[in-house]
Design a binder for these strands. Structure first.
Lengths: 229, 229
DNA sequence: AAAAAAACAAACAGGACTGATTGTATTTTC
DNA sequence: GAAAATACAATCAGTCCTGTTTGTTTTTTT
């Protein structure tokens, strides 16, 4: 209240000065360090002191930018979210739109797999698991996850326009892709087993093709396998 | 050395006395409390004080049984392993062996899903994620995981004897089941979304049936879909 | 150039955690 | 029943963590 009244009486701070630039750089440095810590030592072992050390700044300086650990974590989640969206998009954008469907499916799966094998995804998973028992973190993540899912839907709409009218088949295909590949990725996080990945991606690509072509048939055949009650 | 020489000169402690019974009960009480903590507050937030409180014993008493947190965690992992094996077996044993294959597949999947939806699995996943950044814990878990996988293989051999000669098709079926359902379970851990589970289990059951029947064909057809290079 | 604001660093304070230690109670052995 | 072993409880000590406070430096505004 009193503070806001005070602020209204002065010019807004110039955002183009060296201080402002330095502040923005500092902020990113700290947040990058936070994500690094999630990946290398785990979310559970991430302390403000460790982040400051990794960022190469003092804890006092960092506390100026993020007055509490909670605020720092919140900013880190948002920062991670932006990076994840960017990372996913960068892999998906590499897929040429003029490929035939089955090759495009396969390329999309490989892009998704590369995304799932990233450090950023590891950090994300660390946060998700921690959020199970931390309501505050969970709230932040839910918002981020919802926005990320929307971004995925948007990317897929562009990359796979032929699926746009497949309704429940599309949902099934998305589910099986998501669960199967994320299950595989989490399994890789837990213990590195590179074997079998290509076989699984091949298999999934074929299944997606089948599911898609089920939409070419009209009538009882739609319910033959995939949508059995 | 010197201690062992000393011990060899006296009778072994009677294991049937009240003290021995109480000690075993105490041990299980502590370990149950530890698993409870993993589930309710997460592995990361589990402290010796919290376990002792949950077990209803003093920290001093607990320290007698487990002289360090490390030993307690090690014992908890082993205890969890035993419980997991027992839980999985209990669900799988309920499946009547005289069911037709497709129904037995479906029943096995539902048993596996029930297992994956258990608190024990949640605890297991907490440990797996924590083990990523804790080499000591990871070592313990690797041993446990390997033994658990063997137990699964043994159970499946009994429940699905008709798969015993399907070689790589069997491996594929096991992989897709594992990754898909664990991916789904982990997704449920992270955010509770009960929808779509039955659809996915239906779909997986059908795929397993297909994969199995690919073994009925000899020649190029084996490589038509699933095992494409 | 002085004043104000922002940024940075260092130290303080209280709480939490683990392992070590000391003391007490219970059970078993002789 | 006394001694020994086991079990249990309470306290101590050192370390780490987070938030608060104080002091210094840098940048911007006046």
């Amino acid at each position: 209240m009193a503070k806001e009244a005070k602020d209204s009486g002065r010019k807004e701070r110039d955002k183009s000065g060296w201080q402002a630039q330095k502040s923005a750089m500092m902020r990113d440095t700290i947040l990058d360090a936070a994500l690094d810590c999630f990946v290398t030592i785990g979310y559970a072992n991430t302390t403000t002191a460790r982040i400051a050390e990794r960022a190469g700044v003092s804890r006092g300086a960092m506390l100026h930018h993020f007055p509490s650990k909670s605020e720092l974590m919140q900013a880190a989640v948002e920062y991670l979210h932006q990076k994840l969206v960017g990372l996913y998009a960068s892999h998906i954008e590499k897929v040429p739109l003029d490929l035939p469907v089955d090759e495009r499916n396969r390329a999309g799966l490989e892009g998704y797999w590369t995304y799932l094998r990233s450090d950023l995804y590891v950090a994300y998973h660390e946060l998700c698991v921690a959020g199970r028992t931390d309501p505050e973190l969970q709230d932040i993540l839910e918002d981020s996850i919802a926005r990320f899912d929307e971004a995925i839907v948007e990317s897929n709409r562009r990359l796979f326009p032929e699926w746009s009218e497949r309704g429940e088949l599309y949902e099934l295909a998305m589910d099986i892709t998501k669960f199967l590949m994320e299950g595989m990725a989490v399994s890789q996080i837990v213990s590195q087993r590179e074997k079998r990945v290509n076989r699984m991606i091949d298999y999934l690509g074929d299944r997606l093709e089948e599911i898609f072509h089920e939409g070419d048939e009209v009538g009882a055949a739609i319910h033959r396998h995939s949508l059995r009650k």
